[in-house]
Amino acid sequence: MEDALQNVGQKAVTKAEKQGLYQKLMAHLRELEKTLSGGKDNPNYRKQEIAIEDYVKTYSLFISAEIISVSVQKSAELPKTSPANSITSEHLDSNLEKFTKLAETCYRRGNPSETQLQMLEHFRQKYGISQANADQIIAKFSCGHSQQQALYEYGLMYRAFLESNTEIDFEQQTQLLELQEELGLTNKQVATMEANIQEELGLTEVR
């Protein structure tokens, strides 16, 4: 794992590349938590989490505002079909699964943008998902789950910065502020998270 990250990290130069790699690493950790017995308590999970923390620290990865591609415009040009007349029960189950994945991704970092919501609605109609079913699916990811994940991702970056040099420099502070806004975290949530991490590392008054 460490060697693979090292090879990938050396190729991440631009902001867009680092952004993409950070998102892939977070997705990898989430998938690992689901597949390993015991989730985050599994030793293998912790081992890979430490490797990713070192990677973030070494290459100063960060997330800026997510940019949705012009696929929104292209999707609007797709021919409209009548799902109710053509989708079988098996297809509907498959489409529900696809829509669930889209909804989870959309709400993963807090409140989605207007563009993301428009894309989600487009795929709801394309997959023939009723509004009631869509609302139930979205409700799973639009509150507690997304907040917990957002706090985890912020804490991962903050911890990596502190373990690097025990204090936050100007560039790192701007990256943390960008990430806070991206994740939709309040100042109080961030302050609590940072205080807990400082205490764990034996540090005080870092920021």
Rank of each mutant, 00 (worst) to 15 (best):
N165Y: 09
H91D: 10
E114G: 02
N165K: 15
E171R: 12
E77V: 02
D135L: 01
S86E: 02
K74E: 10
E97D: 03
P43R: 07
E90K: 11
F170A: 12
K24M: 15
K74A: 13
L25S: 14
Q189Y: 02
A103V: 06
Y22A: 14
Q172R: 06
I87K: 08
K188H: 04
L36E: 12
S142C: 11
Q23N: 14
N196H: 06
E199N: 09
V70D: 12
K47F: 08
S94T: 11
L177P: 00
L36P: 07
E66A: 13
N187V: 10
Q73Y: 12
K57H: 02
S60Y: 05
S75I: 06
S64P: 03
S86G: 01
Q136M: 07
Q118W: 03
R108S: 10
A65S: 12
E33T: 13
V56W: 03
K140Y: 07
D54R: 13
G20M: 10
Q173V: 00
K126W: 02
V72F: 11
K57D: 06
A139T: 10
Q125I: 01
E77I: 02
H122E: 00
T105H: 09
A134Y: 04
E153Y: 13
L25M: 15
L36F: 14
F161G: 03
E49R: 13
L151C: 10
Q118E: 07
F62L: 04
L179W: 05
L203E: 11
Q147W: 04
N187F: 08
Q118C: 00
T58H: 07
L162T: 09
K57I: 00
K98S: 12
N85K: 11
N133K: 11
L177A: 05
K18W: 01
K18N: 04
Q148P: 03
D3K: 15
Q6G: 01
L183C: 07
S37L: 14
Y22V: 03
Y154V: 09
S75V: 03
L201H: 08
Q172S: 10
N44F: 08
K98W: 05
G155Y: 15
S164C: 02
L29K: 14
Y127M: 02
T14A: 00
Q19T: 10
L156E: 14
Q23T: 14
Q148L: 11
N111E: 13
T192H: 07
S71V: 13
I50L: 08
V206F: 10
